[in-house]
Design a protein around this nucleic acid. Sequence first.
RNA 1: UGGCCUAUGGUGUAACUGGCAACACAUCUGGUUUUGGUCCAGAAGAGUCUAGGUUCGAGCCCUAGUAGGCCAACCA
Length: 556
Amino acid sequence: MSAPQKSLNFIEQIIEEDLKNNYTKEQLQFRFPPEPNGYLHIGHASSICLNFGLGLKYNAPVNLRFDDTNPTKEESEYVDAIKRDVEWLGFKWSKECYASDYFQQLYDWAVEMIKNGDAYVDSQTSEAIAEQKGTPTTSGTDSPYRNRSVEENLKLFEAMKNGETPEGRDVLRAKISMGAKNMLMRDPIMYRCLHKPHHRTGSDWKIYPMYDWAHGQSDYIEQVSHSFCTLEFQPHRELYNWFAKKVKAADKLKPKQREFARRNLSHTVVSKRKLLQLIEKGLVKSWDDPRMPTISGMRRRGYTPDSIVNFAESIGIGKRENTVSLSHLEFCVREDLNKKAPRVMGVLDPLKVVITNYPEDKEEWLDAENNPEDESAGQRKLPFSRELYIEKEDFREEANRKFFRLKLGKEVRLKNAYIIKAESCVKDDNGNITEVHCTYDEDSRSGSGTEASKRKVKGTLHWVSIKHAVTAKINLYDRLFMVENPTQDKDVDFLEHINPNSHEVITGYLEPSLKDAKVLEHYQFQRIGYFCVDKTSLPSGLVFNKTVGLRDSWKG
RNA sequence: UGGCCUAUGGUGUAACUGGCAACACAUCUGGUUUUGGUCCAGAAGAGUCUAGGUUCGAGCCCUAGUAGGCCAACCA
């Protein structure tokens, strides 16, 4: 009997194929290469899970490598945030690397390339270079500087390195072919002059390598076997291989670049540039705003590492355009939190209930189960008294029989407490219900074992004792965009689709056990949803964020 | 008059490299339940972009179309 084999995704198939042919298991090595110019988002989670997952599966090292070749956009704040997020997801990198660690090696190789006639310094404006690049359908033309002598190139490149060349004047270009069908092969730029301080190398360098030159060679230096990137880099592969050929030593492994489709999530955007725009325009408060699809935003919203990793695994990896529905992500959090989150009671839209036959000064501490899915979670005590809050929407003067809640003359079970019957209600001058007067069945206490306690009543409501309740600020969140794919229509700015009601702040009345809730703890507010203690929460001022609502099959 | 990539239920992935299209989410029924949650049972939903071809047999192979994506930053 062989266990049903889980089918391999196309990346794993490539590796299995390589293992059969030209690679040993020991040679396998991967990397996750973020640019520290923004925070990691749910799209990166797929890449992280892919690379680190492969590392776990094949017991191979995975480096965390910062692709920090552009000092104008990159900051160490982002480096720290990225490390925090990867760790939080539960992955351990083998080495912490930086492309900037390889600047000297890259420079030396570039000098070699100049000597071999594979690179030259171009002194044209960027406009002229762009002009000569041609278009996808027409060939490019050679730069007038293309055939400078090796000596002149060496001298000019040296001057660039020393900062003697002004920014924007000279660049180093690979000498390939201006007639190449692949535009990336039309003498791509390897170095530009940038007299900006770098977050790690300070002012040591006045020239910085471009992505194509730096990335592949970084893979090579670290001896990464498989370099996985997103689909838009597919045309870069030819150049990746071209550079590798110029640099590779006979006895070293040449990394292999392969591409997979980035994952898009419905009702949001996954692009650092667009996310940054949301922040700069004040549409969200920060990178870790709970509405953001960033790892840090999701953490603050109440997502767990397991839920994100499970999500990434369940959506798989492919090569076609895709938009994963938000409901699938929500399913993954609920699935995880259902097992882990303690159940508590809290009322978010209160309606006062008076139990008229319950003594004024009496209070009882009732037993409540912390998690029906997890017996080891234990029990806690809940205070009950004459005046309670229930949700406004849980009471109607009259309703049809599909309404399993409180209505005049009918009974309902108060979770973990008594069966009550609505006798009358009080209204204000506008006819709004302000109070419901009920009577309770004294023998019906939950768990008391009496006949009355075993009576079946259709509805069960959550509630909280008014005099014992603790109040908390509750952040309610909804999807950030009103349409599935905000960037689909190129004629409409994606910001037009922003959901103006994505955030609402209310006051909640919670059972007193929540008084000591700690930052980042997860709870299920019964019958409502999952909530997480916000990082700004204090014992003197609790703050909860709604992660996701409970699945609700009632079409009321 | 360019190159490269992709095309399977509403969504996302499968289909042992040719053998009557599977799984998850979403949807809809019913059951259990002191959460209209969870759990359990079940249903509906694609004949695999189109047209040819090879083959006893094609979602898988070939050809030609069609549709979508990417490529002309001194960004990554």
